[in-house]
Design a protein around this nucleic acid. Structure first.
Lengths: 212, 212
DNA sequence: AGTCGGTCAAACCGATTGGTTAAATCAATC
DNA sequence: GATTGATTTAACCAATCGGTTTGACCGACT
């Protein structure tokens, strides 16, 4: 499911089974909505094994989040590092973000859960958001004023919101949406929309800031 | 807290105390993270009274959500109904939405919780989202194509995402944000950002669709 | 004085929670 | 074939969950 990191390779197969099962259930029902027994059952494993491998419930879910955050950071790091124009860089970042979410569809759900009061790991989310916050404000620093309504931080919020919320909202309005929002065609169309949107915003932003 | 609706006026003061306490705690910790004992304690009331007035935990939280949804719909209904240009109408809708959230800051948290797997009331959220979906697609129908990446449904998603996510994300990055994100000055600045953003999008959208 | 609805405290219920433990199983080693 | 260490199991624990029940208390009305 999530691309394996070195530190997880050393874990036994059974341990990763449990981690994967925990991730799925956490994404479905949230921290307090999932029991250790649910996880064990889903993983096809005895409940004691959950604690044998992962210590406690908060520790287990910490590892679930950590694995996703690490994978997310790895996925976006390259996109940020390489050069090009601002528009090119933003497209690359957004595409990497979309690629990652499409491969890990429960990820935006996990993040939103943490932000809206799910579990005991809000500090992790905070630190993780801060990282991307710094990255994207650095990219936009060239054309975005340091303060005011066109500051980079506002665009960071707006863009990350429109990228992620598609995956948390559309499942609830699939009927109105017409087609399956998670079908390849629908996902491609959404990506086009986001490209158009970012292009439009950056174009006017460049106009205004160069004119000052 | 939430503007009282007629149907709640008939309820006793104690009953509303409990409802308010439930709303606050639900916003903080989510459906499964709050116990009936917590609610009673917060309301300064005996636990038995919670069930005496509201029957059961799911019923109580259903009423919490219902009260918010009703208030939200009432707040936006007027904004949609009255006329004007598309840009004017969109501004009015967005401002009404922001006014409502600023007065009820736990509301976007409750919605996100429901969307990401919190409680047993996903159908209510679905129905509620569907209502706004129809409203806003109707407003945008004049300048938005019926299909493709510039269809109204995409803008509905994008705009509602950037409006609400400010209130769910900024509390987690308050340090990086510089000022208190919920201060009047910060809220006004965010509102300016959103106006600029919507104006920019609608302007280019009108260009493109009139040129076809 | 008696009654009534609202409120309280507290005991209580079965079910479920996170977590532990001691014994059983098994493959690999000697 | 005995030993070992890793893995598996079911039984078990105290605490908490949603929800109920009983009985007393209180102020307001008849």
């Amino acid at each position: 499911m999530v691309k394996a990191k070195k530190q997880y390779d050393s874990k036994s197969e059974r341990a990763l089974q449990i981690l994967d099962a925990a991730a799925v259930l956490l994404g479905e029902s949230g921290y307090d909505g999932v029991s250790a027994r649910d996880i064990a059952e889903r993983a096809g494993v005895n409940k004691a094994l959950v604690f044998y491998y992962w210590g406690s419930k908060p520790e287990l879910f910490e590892k679930v989040l950590e694995r996703y955050y690490d994978a997310h950071r790895d996925a976006l790091e390259q996109a940020f590092e390489t050069g090009g124009t601002i528009v090119e860089r933003m497209h690359r970042v957004m595409d990497s973000y979309l690629d990652f979410i499409e491969e890990n569809r429960i990820y935006p759900r996990l993040v939103q859960q943490q932000l809206t009061g799910g579990g005991p790991h809000t500090d992790m989310v905070r630190h993780h958001l801060a990282t991307f916050f710094e990255w994207i404000t650095e990219v936009l620093a060239e054309i975005s004023p340091k303060t005011g309504p066109l500051a980079a931080k506002h665009f960071y919020l707006s863009i990350s919101a429109i990228v992620t919320n598609y995956f948390t909202i559309t499942p609830a309005i699939a009927k109105q949406w017409g087609v399956d929002p998670m079908s390849p065609a629908a996902l491609a169309e959404r990506r086009e929309h986001l490209h158009w949107l970012v292009d439009t915003l950056l174009a006017r932003l460049q106009e205004e800031t160069s004119g000052d």
